[in-house]
Write a protein that binds this DNA or RNA. Structure first.
Lengths: 219, 219
DNA sequence: TTTGGAAATTTTGAATGCAAAATTGCGATT
DNA sequence: AATCGCAATTTTGCATTCAAAATTTCCAAA
């Protein structure tokens, strides 16, 4: 299944920043690197254009999409909506075992917080958010969530936090776990919504956007 | 821009049911019909597979995706989430003129309801929902909404309603307009959420799913 | 030196070609 | 008559080719 692998390979390059945002993507060059012909490569580029990772310019090739401040805002907003929905549905469907798994990740995350280990914190954090989405048992939701979060992952999990913000985020996560245990879908949706809004404000304040002044060659 | 047009043409065929759900899509045949070669056709099929309209089977071609009851549930749930989010954002951003446009559509819709004109009702209904999403001023949200609603459009806007359900839907729309006028994002999100849940229950009760018993040749 | 513009080169978009996989058709065997 | 197996045909996946568009190069003129 060559085509699928190519999509994955290019997606990884884009998400890792191996192909920097805004950079042109010369077909020939990528073909050489991936050892494939242009046909599957071009199919992959069109697929990636659908979920916004690549921008296709007619007769002028493809380039890695840039995240503007507006893009970040829009993506985080949608993420808010999707996670809130996921929380609500998860409360209807999650089993005790799944809650226990999340609680374990939560406890480990709190430990990382106390130790000031941001990378460890983010790792557990991500596990928790993804577990809630998985618990919603809705493949359409999972797919959209994956697509949206992939685009903001670096912003979300790289931006440093002030101690105050970090403490607040931990408090919010305490509330998230609580709502989940109580199966309070409404409350969980609300707190997730707020949690993500805070994260968004933080990321945008940090100025993560990739739409700096373009150099001439970027045009 | 051949590729884009091909995607549109095939999407239309799938949504209109011109290619029935579950049917195989022989490349050669479609190429002849659209007067194109296999390359852009195959690109289009892969693009359509991304948003779930087409199912790609390795070495065995493409087929029009079927909507199972589970798919309908999942899609409606996501739609609930997206519309609720749209409502909330719309209240922060919508202008008086846009509200006035929606109110006009609402009034016309109420008239259609009184006259028992279901088609006219649905037409206005759709305008209102789409206007709310547009007012959220979030292209990512609009894109996902379009993709999700396209797949359930026939179910949503074809299913007949009992007089009671129809009256309830109208009541809900009165509330929607009210919340919008008052810019009550929270309330609007809630009522939209409920409104869509009712619609979903209705559609699933009506048994719109396309996953009936497969005949042998469908395999 | 800088600018204008045409020719050469590169790159893109789509058609065609080719090998591998899957499907079909047909006949032999039970 | 039904079933199995194998060859013929079709269909798919990818590579290659070809024409059109865009980009670059290069040289002449201001």
């Amino acid at each position: 299944m060559l085509h699928t692998e190519v999509v994955g390979a290019i997606r990884a390059m884009l998400l890792e920043g191996e192909i920097p945002p805004g950079a042109r993507i010369p077909e020939r060059e990528l073909c050489d690197k991936l050892q494939i012909s242009r046909t599957p490569l071009r199919e992959a580029l069109k697929v990636l254009a659908v979920d916004g990772l690549v921008q296709l310019l007619p007769n002028r090739g493809a380039r890695a999409a840039k995240l503007t401040d507006k893009d970040l805002r829009d993506l985080f907003e949608v993420c808010q909506g999707l996670e809130a929905l996921a929380g609500e549905l998860a409360c209807e469907r999650i089993g005790d075992a799944q809650v226990a798994t999340i609680e374990a990740a939560h406890i480990e995350m709190a430990q990382h917080h106390r130790e000031g280990d941001l990378a460890g914190y983010y790792r557990c954090n991500r596990l928790i958010h993804e577990a809630i989405v998985a618990a919603a048992d809705n493949p359409v939701l999972s797919g959209l969530y994956e697509s949206v979060t992939a685009r903001i992952r670096r912003a979300r999990y790289v931006t440093p936090m002030t101690p105050e913000r970090w403490a607040l985020a931990m408090q919010e996560h305490d509330a998230i776990l609580n709502m989940l245990k109580r199966r309070d879908g409404f409350g969980l949706a609300h707190i997730l919504h707020t949690h993500l809004r805070h994260k968004r404000e933080e990321v945008i304040r940090a100025g993560f956007a990739e739409d700096g002044r373009m150099s001439e060659i970027d045009r």
